Computed example of a mutant assay.
Amino acid sequence: MVPVPQLTRAEVAQAARNPLLFVADRWTPSSRTVRRAVLSAVVMAVAIVVTGGAVRLTGSGLGCPTWPKCTDESLTTTSAMGLHGVIEFGNRMLTYVLCAAVGWAIVAARAAKPWRRGVTRIGWAQFWVVMGNAVLGGIVVLVGLNPYTVAAHFLLSTALITLAVLMYHRLGEGDGAPKPLVGKAVSQLTWLLVVAAGLLVAVGTVVTGAGRHAGDSSDVHRIPLDWKLISQLHADLAWIVVALSVALWFVLKAVDAPAVPRRRAGQLFLVLMAQGVIGYVQYFLDTPEILVGLHMLGSCLVWIAVVRVLLAQRERPADTAGVPAPAEPRQEHAPAV
């Protein structure tokens, strides 16, 4: 049996005062460990969206009819609530797994040597978005799956995915000032693509809010818009995003841009094509649940691809990649009055 190390009173006080610094002083993870920790946060950010979609598509949105408890008397689901209760409560529990993944990413980034303050801050930003989305998820239940709150819930999850991808990308950069790899015109075209993709995702939530998958077997309020009309708008925006991605790829090739931005633009086009096929098939088949779920996964992958295209158009020097972790202040002498 490995003996448990005994901590001194000063070490216990340090751990209570700043647990992250306490861990960082005693553990240095490898770069691979840090990347895996941050990647786990990306994977869980996508997984929580997909499983949240499964809750809605199985009609389990009110499987636990209240929040934060599952019922007024029980914190967990009961046998009387059936499969819907299990699915809804399971999704709630998955939030703790997401918190653990984000927390692991924060700890690994903080303990890495040299310490990169900016990377750790992105991890904390993820943590607070998770907390905010958990509260918003509770509000969604309390207001009976109001479609506007459901849309906000999805958009905040998209913000979480953005931060997770940004944190993962920052691990491969230094901390110097960003330097563009493309000209101003290409950068403007890329930002136009980002805005169009953002509108595509936002309108997609309206399609969901006006569609037939209300998230519960009972009568749930829907957004009072013509579903076919808003679906057509969504499809038009999708074609605009596809056209912009193709234009960007050709422009990057024409200006002889570095290989990474061109490769990311090509990857985005392929993801968009796959997502478009799923979107049209689900529309003509009257939105079967399995295809809607795949389309939600595709939405996450499209947005990740768009963010990666944007981030690939800059570089940061690695010679200023880290800053030393601050030493614990000594208390040898009382400060002068």
Rank of each mutant, 00 (worst) to 15 (best):
W239I: 02
A327E: 15
L294D: 05
A265H: 05
V4L: 12
K184I: 02
Y148V: 15
V323L: 08
Y168N: 00
Q313E: 12
P326T: 04
T158S: 04
V323D: 05
G176P: 07
C64N: 08
W227T: 13
T33N: 01
R316N: 08
M81F: 01
V23G: 07
A15S: 03
V201T: 14
A235I: 06
V135T: 11
A247N: 00
K69N: 15
H213D: 08
P147K: 10
V255Y: 00
P65H: 13
H333C: 03
I48K: 03
E328D: 12
L98D: 06
V307H: 09
V102G: 09
D226P: 07
R330K: 15
L83T: 14
G276F: 03
L291E: 08
N91S: 07
K228Q: 10
G90E: 06
P288D: 13
R222W: 08
F154I: 13
R308K: 11
T78R: 12
L301I: 10
V251H: 02
L98E: 11
A243T: 04
T66Y: 03
I122W: 15
P68N: 05
L237P: 10
V141T: 14
T8Y: 00
M93W: 08
A196M: 12
A254K: 11
D286H: 15
T190I: 05
V130N: 06
S40P: 06
E173F: 08
G61D: 12
A243M: 01
G276T: 04
D236A: 09
G198T: 06
A327Q: 15
S299H: 00
L268K: 06
L83W: 12
I240P: 02
H221A: 10
R110D: 09
V86Q: 12
G82K: 05
I161C: 04
A243D: 00
L270H: 00
G85F: 02
V38I: 07
V307M: 10
M296V: 08
V86S: 09
D175R: 07
V251R: 04
I278E: 01
A210V: 12
W249Q: 12
V50C: 02
L21A: 14
T95D: 02
Q188R: 15
T320D: 05
F250R: 07
R9E: 09
I122Q: 14
P288M: 12
N133Q: 11
L39R: 11
P261A: 01
A80Q: 14
K253C: 01
G144C: 01
Q6N: 04
W67P: 13
P178S: 05
T33S: 09
G276P: 02
E328Y: 12
D175F: 00
E73Q: 15
Q188N: 09
A10K: 03
H295A: 09
T28H: 15
V4S: 04
V102R: 08
K184S: 03
V55Y: 10
A47V: 13
Q188Y: 03
G52R: 08
S217E: 08
V242L: 04
S231R: 00
T162D: 03
L136E: 04
W124P: 11
A112S: 13
V129L: 09
V194I: 08
A151K: 13
I106V: 14
V141L: 08
L83F: 14
K69R: 15
Q275Y: 01
G198V: 03
